[in-house]
Design a protein around this nucleic acid. Structure first.
Length: 440
RNA sequence: GUGGCUAUAGCUCAGUUGGUUAGAGCACUGGUUUGUGGUACCAGGGGUCGCCGGUUCAAAUCCGGUUAGCCACCCCA
């Protein structure tokens, strides 16, 4: 027997039902926020990904040469394709551009808990709006989708940070561009690194002031209140150009929190400058969703990336977005018992009395199907008892009993499988009767 | 890419110091049941014990290799 390739999954009907459940929530959420759905190709030119992420990315891609000698790769993420699509029509698209997609990605890396080689992602992005209102809207989409899944503020938290604020702060300490990104990289790893090791790695940038810097960073990353954030920067950044820029950021923070508070989502937000995200291209707010217990890797992540569209050959285009994978969220929902069962069930299961009723039954089955109902019935002859058992196990709400007695009187018996209640209905009124019963 | 642990039926697992034809529960199929479901009872199908090699009269069991999975590290768009 062949097996699935490492990191790839088979989706048996119950897995597929689950996947559809997730996809439906994602799609409905995006539509509630009036995002438009788009899609792009699974296979792209290898250069597209190199340009965004550098040559090192190639070892983590499913990359190969096609029959025409082109260097191509399965997409590891949607953003480059999206940036290309947006760039190509930037002038013709009404702002703000609110788009989402649900797509499969492929990454050639070692399989791990919460991480596979093939996975699905929900992406939502807003282009053309630089203000914090767009960031708030994106974060709201993320929170809303998690809430619709049945999670609440006891289950997850959105840790929000600010790349731009970090850069300004490090610049105010006199660091040059290269040193800024190196130090940010260290801040990103702070949680997972012993303090002494971290201190050692800071020395090339701060020399004797390393300990002092680390203490400040520890203070900063522990700040959870807007007011504390304000006073920290008032105390640590001297007045001047940089301080003006910092104040602008603090205003943006204020706007962000106010908007989320307005939507009743403030309790999901945790100010946490410890989040940096590895990506160099983030330019403003960055955020990640985590389960409260911290047992899983990030559920979702995103942020503002105002320069990426231009970098990939488009016009200047501010952008903010996030992505949520299907793997971690599925694990979390499973753990919380929030995954529904019986998602692929017919509406009606037809119970057949014998050969004499078959044609009358098939006629009604077809009428029900035309009316939009999902209908199943036993394909081979089976005893009544077995049929009710099958009806029950199918998950159907209704059993439609086409017995010889009923059919000979032009009737059919509808049985509510949950309550056991039975009603006789004229054959030619079956569709209407079902509709009425479902509504009542 | 590095290290540790694991691999027996679709699933969860048992399998004695190496010893006949490798077992259980769940699931699946059929029956008890030609007009009423979740229960019960009976029967059945399903495994080259991950794969390759070695030791042995004899290997699921011992040894080596390999592949896959889990955990940690690295990475994480």
């Amino acid at each position: 027997m062949f097996k699935t390739l490492p990191g790839f999954r088979d989706f048996y009907p119950e897995d597929c039902a689950l996947r559809n459940h997730l996809f439906q929530i994602w799609r409905k959420t995006a539509q509630s926020f009036s995002f438009k759905e788009y899609d792009g190709p699974i296979l792209e030119s290898l250069d597209l990904f190199k340009q965004k992420s550098g040559d090192e990315i190639v070892s983590q891609l499913f990359a190969f040469e096609d029959q025409g000698g082109r260097a191509v790769a399965l997409r590891p993420e949607m953003t480059p394709s999206l940036a290309r699509m947006i760039g190509a029509r930037a002038n013709a698209l009404k702002r703000p551009i609110k788009w989402f997609t649900i797509e499969e990605n492929f990454r050639y890396e070692r399989k791990q808990k919460g991480r596979l080689r093939s996975f699905y992602q929900f992406n939502a992005d807003i282009f053309g709006e630089p203000g914090a209102g767009a960031d708030a809207e994106i974060i709201a989409v993320l929170i809303h989708s998690l809430c619709v899944m049945g999670l609440n503020s006891d289950d997850f938290v959105i840790r929000v940070s600010d790349r731009h604020l970090w850069v300004l702060y490090l610049q105010s300490l006199g660091l040059e561009e290269e040193a800024v990104s190196a130090v940010l990289g260290l801040v990103d790893k702070m949680e997972r690194m012993p303090r002494e090791v971290l201190l050692e790695k800071l020395v090339p940038y701060f020399n004797d002031a390393s300990e002092d810097f680390l203490v400040k960073v520890e203070t900063l990353t522990q700040i959870r209140e807007l007011a504390d954030l304000n006073s920290f920067f008032k105390a640590h950044v001297a007045a001047g150009e940089l301080a003006d820029a910092v104040n602008e950021r603090l205003d943006a923070w204020d706007a962000l929190i106010q908007r989320l508070d307005g939507m009743g989502m403030k309790s999901f937000i945790r100010i946490d400058l410890g989040i940096v995200r590895g990506l160099a291209y983030y330019t403003g707010f960055v955020f990640e969703a985590f389960d409260i217990q911290g047992e899983h890797r990030a559920i979702a992540g995103g942020g503002r990336y105002d320069h990426l569209v231009k970098k990939l050959g488009g016009p200047d285009m501010p952008a903010v977005g996030f992505a949520m994978g299907d793997v971690v969220i599925k694990d979390l929902l499973e753990e919380k018992g929030l995954l529904p069962t019986y998602i692929q069930a017919p509406d009606v299961y037809v119970v057949l009395g014998g050969d004499e009723v078959l044609s009358a039954a098939l006629q009604q089955i077809q009428a029900l199907r035309l009316a939009g109902y999902s209908v199943d019935y036993p394909i081979k002859r089976v005893g009544f008892g077995k049929q009710f058992k099958a009806a029950n196990e199918s998950g159907a709400r209704w059993a439609a009993v086409f017995g010889e007695e009923e059919v000979s009187q032009g009737q059919v018996k509808l049985k509510n499988l949950a309550s056991g209640e039975e009603t006789e209905i004229p054959l030619n009124r079956l569709v209407e009767a079902l509709r009425e019963l479902d509504e009542s």
